[in-house]
Amino acid sequence: MPTANDEIQRHIFGLLVENKVGVLGRITGLFSARGFNIDCLSVAETEDPTVSRITLVTAGDSRILEQVQKQLNKLIDVIKVMDLSEEPHIARELVLIKVNAGAETREEVFRIASIFRGKIVDVTPKTYTLEVTGDEDKIRAVINLLKPLGIREMVRTGTIAIARGQRVL
């Protein structure tokens, strides 16, 4: 079906869900069954222990993004869904990077960490482990700068996001 704006966009959805066994399975199952992508996903309990919050990043044209939201809303265990990309929001991610830090590169790693307001959270004679927080662009930039120095291992939390202003999910 031709539509006015059918280019692929990346959207961040915030979800409140019942904090029960199997809820994540229902959500990932929905995505695989309907052929939607999950670019990244993060889940944790909220201030109310019966409710978990999920941040889910997906890509699709406007029709698919609308279906994603509607299908998520249909799940009984999904309490609320918000398309955060439709409004001003703050998105953050945390990355831990274990990078080579021998005699020649220690200074450079340290410099990059401070430029990105990262922290060195673990040190060995051969490696530094950095913790960096930021939006997707910042995380990508720091990874690109550290790559030539030799990243041994890294782990990202995936995006979490919240609406700006007084609006809440």
């Binding site: 079906m1 031709p2 029709r63 279906q67 509607k70 809303n73 249909k74």
Partner: peptide
Amino acid sequence: LEEFCVGAKFIHIDIDPSSIGKNVR
């Protein structure tokens, strides 16, 4: 779908929001 009811406007009444706009605008 490209050739379905090309000259028509659609009113769609349904209890399931996900059925609306899924296949036709």
